[in-house]
Measured scan of single mutants.
Amino acid sequence: MIVFVRFNSSHGFPVEVDSDTSIFQLKEVVAKRQGVPADQLRVIFAGKELRNDWTVQNCDLDQQSIVHIVQRPWRKGQEMNATGGDDPRNAAGGCEREPQSLTRVDLSSSVLPGDSVGLAVILHTDSRKDSPPAGSPAGRSIYNSFYVYCKGPCQRVQPGKLRVQCSTCRQATLTLTQGPSCWDDVLIPNRMSGECQSPHCPGTSAEFFFKCGAHPTSDKETSVALHLIATNSRNITCITCTDVRSPVLVFQCNSRHVICLDCFHLYCVTRLNDRQFVHDPQLGYSLPCVAGCPNSLIKELHHFRILGEEQYNRYQQYGAEECVLQMGGVLCPRPGCGAGLLPEPDQRKVTCEGGNGLGCGFAFCRECKEAYHEGECSAVFEASGTTTQAYRVDERAAEQARWEAASKETIKKTTKPCPRCHVPVEKNGGCMHMKCPQPQCRLEWCWNCGCEWNRVCMGDHWFDV
């Protein structure tokens, strides 16, 4: 396979590697080409510095992935760790964990309700045991953590790749202090920090972006993250068709209702045909949960890209028209025109101005929308079919299609509260000796007794199943 190397943020060049090629071997190839010592090179990928003893497969490097290699003399205490030698983080029983690669970060837990604080980093599902597709590297999971809308060759929703760059020099040479644990960490600028490894760059702020994971991409090709779309790892039924499908869209209502993408497309087109989208002054033209839940309008309007190009163009047109109407304007009634106009409040005669090729020149009556006339309008008909009709959803289907309910059931079956801080902690095999993952707590306690870890627990039921 081919990976592209950008040395000291210059133009990239291809390097041929195998899945079992080590990072140090990659350094040696680059060092020979650039005429520099291999031990002064640092390989940066997806916000993480890659260790010498890791392989291309370990690092989730795919065909035509772009890695950054910078030349920086080692500072005291760094060289041993980078070589894969006596790194205290690798000691058996050590409590410190390697910062998780962005290629394996899962933010789907952050669609849980606000009262489930902490689960994004504490609760991990076991539903990723799908067998890898044919042709994928051994052991590589097909679980997708992110979804994007690819405006490039795909023109559809695709699995996405999370990447990070330095907000100062805009190069992907920043190593994160810690990985993101929720969508806010990724979507809110300057929320996460790190250290830029580019020479002479003092940058410390992280800037995240997404790429389409279905095809090789260049540095400049980015895609918009659709953070309401998630892999259906909890096997929730769709609120409309009641099938279990994946991926799904999880509405931001209190129940976190789930809808499959085909039904979401149908829901949007139906509402669009009836012009029953909601115009929100802050958000724009949007839709609420299909069950009509309060405070559930979709905030990231790129989710409506699921409509496809033709329907999305209609959505944008109707949204612009609705904006004009909300501002007190009118639409030209001549067939084939429909231009938005903003006449004076007491102006009865409205002319669709033909300047700049935008208007048709038609003069019409503001009251009856017919060709302009003197005197009273002959008839004014009330528009028919403008009443909002509820999208029919079966109550039982709505009850079963809740992301929140599956989460709470998982928590109930696989977790116990920490005796000190009461945060839910998952036990997935292993011994009875637990350690609270909350940095402010870190209590060592017994899963069996529910009390602080002691010699009695150690001698009596340390390794009970």
Rank of each mutant, 00 (worst) to 15 (best):
L162E: 00
E353R: 07
W462R: 00
C182V: 07
G85L: 13
Y285V: 04
R402G: 05
V70Y: 04
T173Q: 09
M434N: 04
R348H: 07
M458F: 12
G292Q: 08
V456I: 15
G84V: 13
I23P: 00
Y147I: 01
Q317K: 14
L358Q: 14
G114R: 13
A172K: 12
I239M: 09
H200V: 09
A390L: 13
Q100K: 12
Q311A: 06
P294C: 07
T242E: 14
P202Q: 10
S218Q: 11
S131Y: 10
L301P: 09
P14V: 02
G375Q: 07
H373T: 02
D39C: 05
L301T: 13
T222K: 11
R234C: 06
F364E: 03
F264C: 01
H257W: 00
Q25P: 01
G308A: 05
P137S: 13
R72L: 15
N454S: 15
A120I: 03
L443H: 14
C260H: 01
S255D: 15
K369F: 13
C436F: 00
K413T: 14
E395K: 12
Q34R: 08
V250R: 09
Q100W: 09
V250I: 13
Q282T: 12
N313M: 12
V117D: 15
V30N: 00
T414A: 10
S109V: 03
V393R: 05
P180C: 00
E79R: 09
L342T: 09
A38H: 06
L249S: 01
T231I: 07
D280L: 12
V67I: 10
E98K: 10
P345Q: 11
W447Y: 10
L226T: 03
S108C: 10
T240D: 04
D185K: 02
V117T: 12
N448R: 05
C169E: 01
H461C: 00
R89C: 13
G375W: 05
R314S: 03
L249M: 09
D243K: 12
V105L: 13
I236Y: 04
C238F: 00
E28P: 00
F13H: 03
G203N: 04
C212I: 01
L301I: 11
F277L: 12
N232Y: 01
L249T: 00
L107P: 14
N81G: 15
N81L: 15
C446L: 00
C431P: 07
L297F: 06
A401V: 00
Y372T: 06
L174H: 03
Q100Y: 09
I298S: 02
L301M: 11
E207R: 07
C436A: 02
S218F: 10
L102P: 12
E370D: 10
V456T: 15
G450I: 03
C337L: 03
G194Y: 02
C59I: 04
I23Q: 01
K416H: 05
N273P: 00
C59F: 03
I306Q: 03
C377Y: 02
L287E: 01
R156Q: 14
L331V: 05
W462Y: 15
L162W: 00
A172D: 15
Q316K: 13
C169P: 01
T270D: 03
F24Q: 11
A383P: 11
G338Y: 08
Y143S: 10
I306F: 04
R366V: 11
C293D: 01
H200M: 12
D60T: 05
K427W: 10
L119P: 15
V258A: 07
Y149K: 02
E353S: 08
H461I: 01
P343T: 09
V244T: 07
L261I: 10
R402C: 10
C241M: 01
C436Y: 01
G319K: 07
K129I: 11
R442S: 11
E321L: 07
I411L: 11
E426C: 07
G47C: 03
S141W: 06
H265N: 07
Q197W: 07
T387Y: 11
E367S: 07
Q438I: 03
S19E: 10
V330D: 04
R420Q: 14
D243S: 14
D86A: 11
D464N: 15
S108K: 11
P88L: 13
M458N: 15
S233C: 08
P137G: 13
C337F: 02
G340N: 05
V157Y: 07
W445N: 01
G93M: 12
P180G: 00
V330C: 07
H303S: 04
D243A: 13
D106G: 12
K408D: 12
P333G: 03
L102C: 10
M327V: 08
G429K: 14
E452Y: 15
Q440M: 12
P159R: 09
R442N: 09
Y318W: 02
M1I: 07
Y372N: 05
F264W: 06
H422P: 01
G114Q: 13
H302P: 06
D130T: 11
F264Q: 00
R275T: 01
I44M: 07
K416C: 06
D219K: 08
S101Y: 08
C436H: 01
G361P: 02
C268I: 05
D184N: 09
A339M: 15
G459W: 03
F381N: 06
N295H: 07
G194F: 03
E353V: 09
V164F: 10
R6C: 05
L331M: 05
S296R: 00
C377F: 02
C263N: 01
E195S: 11
I188L: 11
C360I: 02
P335F: 07
C431E: 04
P37I: 06
N356R: 11
S255M: 09
H257K: 00
T415C: 10
S378Y: 15
L261Y: 04
A214W: 05
G139R: 11
C166Y: 00
N144C: 05
C260Q: 01
S218C: 11
I259H: 00
K129E: 13
V70T: 03
G355H: 12
Y312R: 02
D86T: 12
D243T: 13
G292D: 07
S286E: 00
P137F: 11
D460N: 07
I229K: 02
M327K: 15
I411Y: 10
F364T: 03
I23L: 01
S407Y: 10
H124R: 10
M434V: 06
A397I: 11
H200R: 10
K427F: 14
S255A: 12
R455P: 15
K416A: 07
T242K: 12
E404Y: 08
T386Q: 11
S116Q: 09
T222C: 08
T55Y: 04
V290A: 12
H303L: 06
F364I: 04
A225N: 03
W447Q: 05
G292M: 06
I229S: 00
D20P: 02
G354T: 12
D106W: 04
R275C: 02
V425D: 10
D130K: 11
G152N: 14
L325I: 10
G429C: 14
R442F: 07
D184R: 06
T240I: 15
G361S: 07
S205Y: 10
G194E: 02
C201L: 00
S108V: 09
V465T: 03
F381H: 07
C368E: 03
V105P: 14
G292A: 08
A92E: 15
M432G: 03
K369P: 02
P216K: 08
I298A: 01
Q282L: 11
T168S: 10
L112S: 14
E374F: 06
D20K: 08
A38E: 06
K211H: 15
R128C: 09
N273T: 03
P14T: 03
C150M: 00
C59P: 01
Q171T: 08
L112V: 14
F210I: 05
G336Y: 09
P159E: 06
D185I: 01
L107D: 15
T83S: 13
E28F: 02
Q282C: 11
A405R: 13
R245D: 04
D106S: 11
H124G: 14
L187G: 03
A398Y: 08
C241D: 02
G357R: 12
G179V: 04
D346Q: 09
Q34G: 05
G340S: 09
C201N: 01
P335R: 06
Y312D: 02
Q326F: 06
E395Y: 14
K211V: 15
S218T: 13
G194D: 00
E16R: 08
W447M: 06
Y318N: 01
C421R: 00
Y372M: 10
E321P: 03
C418Y: 01
Q389V: 14
A406Q: 12
V278F: 08
I259G: 01
Q25K: 07
L41D: 00
A371I: 13
A339Q: 10
A225Y: 04
D86L: 11
P343A: 09
Q276L: 10
N273E: 03
P88V: 11
D20F: 05
G47V: 00
D460P: 02
